[in-house]
C-alpha cells in the first residue's frame, strides 16, 4: 500500500489525545470530487466514506480487516478502507464503487459481474470489484489460480466464488479488447 501521508502523523495524533477527540481538517478527492472535512483522529477511512460523505456502496463486513467488503482505491491501488485512518488519506485520490462507471458506461468488471452472475446478495460485491480492478491493472490476463489467489483478502459467503472467477475472466477479456460472448440467454448452461 503506497499512500502519501501529508501534514499529520496519525499515530502520533492518536497518542497525543489518548485516543480522544483531536480533530483534523483534511482534503480528499473522492470519485473526482474534492472535499475538505474535519475528522477525528481515530476516524477510519471507511467511516469517512460512508458516514461523512454518504457513499454507502463501500461496506463494512468485519472488524479485523479480513473480509474486504470495504475495499476502495487510494491513489489507484486497492486498499481496505477499514485499515486506514481518514487522516492518512489526506491529499489522496480515492475511488469507490460509485466512481467506477465512466460516462454512464459500466466498468467491464461491473458488466462482468452482472453477466456472469458474480453476485447474489451484493454485499461483498463492491469490495470484490475494486480488488479485481487492481488485479487486472497488474495482470491483464490472470489464470483462474491467479484470480483465486488475488481474492484471498475478500470473503463472499453467497456465490462460492465460482461465478466471481468467471466474472473477472469476462472483464479481463473485455479489457484486453477481446470480443466476449456472454452466455446466451437461451443457451443450455449445464456443466461449466
Amino acid at each position: 500500500m503506497k499512500v502519501r501521508v501529508r501534514k499529520v502523523n496519525p499515530v502520533k495524533a492518536l497518542f497525543k489525545t489518548g485516543g480522544g477527540v483531536m480533530r483534523h481538517t483534511i482534503q480528499v478527492t473522492v470519485n473526482g470530487q474534492t472535499h475538505q472535512v474535519e475528522v477525528e483522529s481515530r476516524m477510519l477511512l471507511v467511516e469517512l466514506i460512508r458516514d461523512v460523505l454518504g457513499l454507502t456502496g463501500t461496506h463494512v463486513g468485519c472488524d479485523t480487516s479480513q473480509c474486504g467488503a470495504c475495499t476502495v482505491h487510494v491513489n489507484g491501488e486497492a486498499v481496505k478502507s477499514c485499515t486506514m485512518f481518514a487522516v492518512q488519506a489526506d491529499g489522496c485520490e480515492i475511488t469507490t464503487i460509485e466512481g467506477l462507471a465512466q460516462d454512464g458506461q459500466l466498468h467491464p468488471l461491473q458488466e462482468g459481474f452482472w453477466q456472469e452472475h458474480g453476485l447474489q446478495c451484493g454485499f461483498c460485491t463492491p469490495g470484490i470489484i475494486m480488488a479485481a480492478a487492481d488485479l487486472l491493472k497488474r495482470n491483464p490476463n490472470p489464470s483462474e489460480d491467479e484470480i483465486r489467489h488475488a481474492l484471498e483478502g475478500n470473503y463472499c459467503r453467497c456465490t462460492g466464488y465460482h461465478n466471481i472467477v468467471r466474472a473477472i475472466q469476462y472483464a479481463a477479456a473485455r479489457m484486453r479488447g477481446e470480443a466476449v460472448v456472454p452466455r446466451g440467454e437461451a443457451a443450455p448452461t449445464g456443466a461449466s
Binding site: L55, T56, G57, T58, H59, T96, I97, E98, L100, A101, L106, Q110, E111, F113, W114, Q115, H117, L119, G122, F123, T125, P126, I129, R183, E185, A186, A187, T189
Partner: peptide, 18 residues
Amino acid sequence: VPVRRVEDRRFVTGQGRY
C-alpha cells in the same frame, strides 16, 4: 432462461440499500 438479474444494476454500482 438465464435472464440476467434485474437487481444487479444497483448492486454492481454501489446503490444497494442495506
